[in-house]
């Protein structure tokens, strides 16, 4: 007999997975971000439908209180994601800064063209 908790769990999992699929399909989440989120969607859907799976996996990993497993894994993934985001941000900032510099140089040279063959910079 299917309990209400199972309905809620399966429903939530399916909803989250569906949302991610929808975002990918509509290209709101695209490219490599989709690559990260799709597996998560699958895992969330599966665990939502069969939460007891953690009871199987937990002891194998030496975890005595299996429900903690999704939490630990989820947290680790969040940390990784944040790290990746900071690295990305650094790259973006660098590109943006150099772009701003190039525009300023262009504007300066527009008004005042020095009489020498310019070099690469």
């Amino acid at each position: 007999m299917v309990t209400s908790y199972q309905w809620i769990s399966t429903g939530t999992g399916a909803l989250v997975a569906a949302a991610i699929f929808y975002l990918v399909r509509r290209d709101h989440l695209h490219g490599r971000y989709a690559l990260w989120w799709l597996p998560i969607a699958v895992v969330v859907a599966v665990l939502g439908a069969y939460p007891r799976l953690v009871d199987l996996v937990g002891p194998v990993l030496g975890i005595h209180y299996p429900p903690v497993l999704p939490l630990v894994v989820g947290f680790a993934l969040v940390l990784i994601k944040l790290l990746m985001m900071d690295i990305e941000r650094s790259k973006s900032e660098r590109r943006l800064q150099r772009l701003i510099q190039r525009v300023a140089i262009l504007e300066g040279r527009l008004r005042h063209t020095p009489p020498v063959e310019p070099e690469e910079y």
Partner: peptide
């Protein structure tokens, strides 16, 4: 002076690097 107007605040070093890149571009 020749003015290189930055479109956003980059700080002293960002500004100096702009000047250095300009100097290189001009030889």
């Amino acid at each position: 002076a020749v003015v290189l107007p930055l479109a956003a605040r980059l700080g002293a070093w960002g500004a100096i690097q702009t000047g250095i890149r300009y100097a290189l571009a001009c030889g």
